[in-house]
Amino acid sequence: MRLPRPIWPWPFAVKHMTNRERFIKALRREPLTGLVPTFELVFYLTMEAIGKVHPSQRIFSQWDQMSAKEKEVQFADMADTYILTAEKYSHSAIFVHPNPSDFDSTIRILESIREKTDDEYFLMMHGDPTFSIPDGHRMMEFTTRMYEKPDELKKSAENRLAISIEFAEKMSAYPGLLDGFALCSDYCFNVNPFFSPAMFEEFIAPYLARVIDAYRSMGYYTIKHTDGNIMPIAGQMVDCKPDAIHSLDPQGGVSLTEMRRLYSDKVALIGNVNCGLLQTGSEEECRADVLRSLKEGMAGYGYVFSTSNCAYTGLALERYEMMIDLWRQFGVYT
């Protein structure tokens, strides 16, 4: 006989955990049952997957000319794009890329997602003030400043830090909207980090630690992302105390097992499915890589399943869907 479903707060009922709650449990490295959480920093394939242009690829050349009603429709449609993607692939978190990116529009898109889904999803945004690898044209100029004008560079780092903290403080006046920040400044190439460990200690780590601390004091979680071989600076990154480290790039030789051995008592781990292989490998190779990631990642708690970068433009959707199908079958804590 089928029993009626208990209604919360009936004392013996098991409360359904939201995706947000499950994601937070993973960030806190707490025990979980059921599917290990998953999400993507960006899922660009929205047109193919759900028939909608990704919000960050929309160009609103006449935004200021739009009526308030028209803007609302646009916000609602962008919110739907994020939500439908999360629903389709059972993502636990949504990385919101506000477009337009002014503060009021940022608040509105977050509100719109919350209005439609309440607290179902963990919402995050960009928020990394630290220096990343400079582009090819600026590399020499940036390097020269590190050697010849370190104080000037540190002043610039302070300014960037202040801007990020100021934004978070403004955001914290709207409680319940944003859950965390993704810190996406890239530090590493495949072979090694751009910054030597000593340079990282001087020019990056102090500011990374302070921004993470400031975000945490306001109640925000932090996920530190970088591509490439992080191993020479991984300890320093962990010491800055982000809640999670993202990408764990196998193209950069990062081993999920090794990261788990070294740091899983201090930080959650996200990523490691080889996103390059998803595009270029055979189906068998991709399948093996996904299963390897799940096995290594789920050797304990504090793990979120994802690609080692994002579902990028040009990636074959069927490969991403194969990855998610495997996760649904094998990404279950027993």
């Binding site: 590399m139 020499m140 390097t143 020269t144 590190m146 050697y147 190439f189 072979v191 090694n192 980090p193 751009f194 910054f195 030597s196 340079m199 020479p232």
Partner: peptide, 14 residues
């Protein structure tokens, strides 16, 4: 062999 990093290469090239 990761004994020097890109900025050290750049400054040597300069």
């Amino acid at each position: 062999i990761n004994e020097v990093f890109v900025p050290e290469v750049l400054i040597a090239a300069r």
